[in-house]
Design a protein around this nucleic acid. Structure first.
Lengths: 124, 124
DNA sequence: TTGTTAATGATAATCATTATCATTAAATAT
DNA sequence: ATATTTAATGATAATGATTATCATTAACAA
């Protein structure tokens, strides 16, 4: 059976209070800032577990994995300059709309966009 | 300046004659089958170079990178039943349209859909 | 044909992630 | 409340895909 540990709780909390994507290392950083002394292995373990339970979701970009509180399907924008990964909401990202557009029943999707984010675009 | 080597040529050829995604290791395997004795480091190096030149494109899936002859941006549909990965063309996948929709300049995108394909849907 | 230097190949290094294992602490039974 | 069971933790070693290093090779221009 599964045990609800304080570590798991804290990690879930951090992912849930963040709108965008976090790497495992970033989660560990935040934990340290909060004076929670949790081993990096436990962070990796619990993020993986939470994905398995469908509470959060995971994407791969370049050489790392990133996590977000939005389970399942996501659209995200990765800035080529600052490296931030922003979750975005786009109207086309609708299950029914997509199924019609594609002509097959879509259960899950993942859209990755790369470019220059608003902030980086402003300060050329 | 850049040099057109026999190794680069062979690697590009292999990616171009394959419709699906290939890992670096798979490319190396195929090279070996063709009796081309090319070091694995060269395979990685040249795949990366070809991506940089926009001749092929790269995705990250789980813990590995995969390469396809379709440059830059791709839409794929993975059938959960038969496991086939179909490359699809969808009208929403237009650079300008997407940039407007998202509000940031999109240079590159990648869409992965998962569900039941037409054929599998027909013969429930 | 020769000189320059980018590319190669063998392999060591890197680095994100996972496995190991002794110890700790949830959850359950007493 | 206490003891028991065993999943979870934390420190760290191991893994594995990818990248860096460097002596050697081979494109390509002169």
């Amino acid at each position: 059976m599964q045990r609800w540990t304080s570590q798991l709780s804290l990690i879930l909390e951090i992912v849930y209070e963040t709108e965008h994507f976090l790497s495992a290392e970033r989660v560990h950083q935040i934990l340290t800032q909060k004076n929670a002394n949790i081993g990096i292995a436990t962070v990796y373990r619990n993020l993986k577990k939470l994905v398995g339970q469908g509470l959060i979701s995971e994407i791969s970009w370049k050489d790392m994995k990133y996590y977000t509180r939005h389970p399942f399907s996501n659209a995200f924008f990765a800035c080529e300059k600052c490296g931030n990964i922003l979750r975005i909401d786009i109207p086309i990202a609708d299950q029914t709309y997509l199924s019609n557009e594609i002509g097959m029943s879509v259960n899950k999707w993942n859209m990755r966009f790369e470019g220059i984010c608003e902030e980086c675009g402003r300060c050329t």
